[in-house]
């Protein structure tokens, strides 16, 4: 549940989601759920020329199971907070 809560805190921020098929999409994080499915708004594909069919997609739903990476804004990570949360979770608290 840690990463679910973590991503919930990132809602509204600009992220880049890289998929297992190498498609990378940048957009504003709209919402996330327990499967880490992601909804993005104002999306644009990083390599637009290679994926012309994505041109008119503004909002999208990405299935959590196909995500490889989520690139976050540099100031989007409070490392100390994440460390603490991970330890709390590991202790079962």
């Amino acid at each position: 549940m840690l990463f679910f809560s973590y991503f919930k805190d990132l809602v509204g921020q600009e992220v880049t989601v890289e998929l297992k098929n190498d498609l990378a999409i940048r957009g504003t994080l709209h919402s996330v759920d327990q499967y880490l499915n992601i909804k993005l708004e104002n999306t644009r594909v990083v390599d637009q020329d290679k994926y012309p069919h994505m041109l008119s997609v503004r909002n999208c739903f990405i299935r959590g199971s196909v995500v490889r990476y989520v690139q976050l804004p540099p100031d989007g990570v409070d490392v100390d907070l994440l460390h603490d949360a991970a330890r709390r979770e590991a202790r079962g608290g």
Binding site: P52, H53, M54, S56, R58, N59, C60, I62
Partner: peptide
């Protein structure tokens, strides 16, 4: 079947669906 889905995108009807050179 859901496991085959990668992405579901809403098509913006205002915009051109494809680049004009296609």
């Amino acid at each position: 079947r859901g496991e085959n889905v990668v992405l579901i995108g809403e098509l913006d009807t205002e915009r051109e669906e494809l680049p004009p050179n296609m």
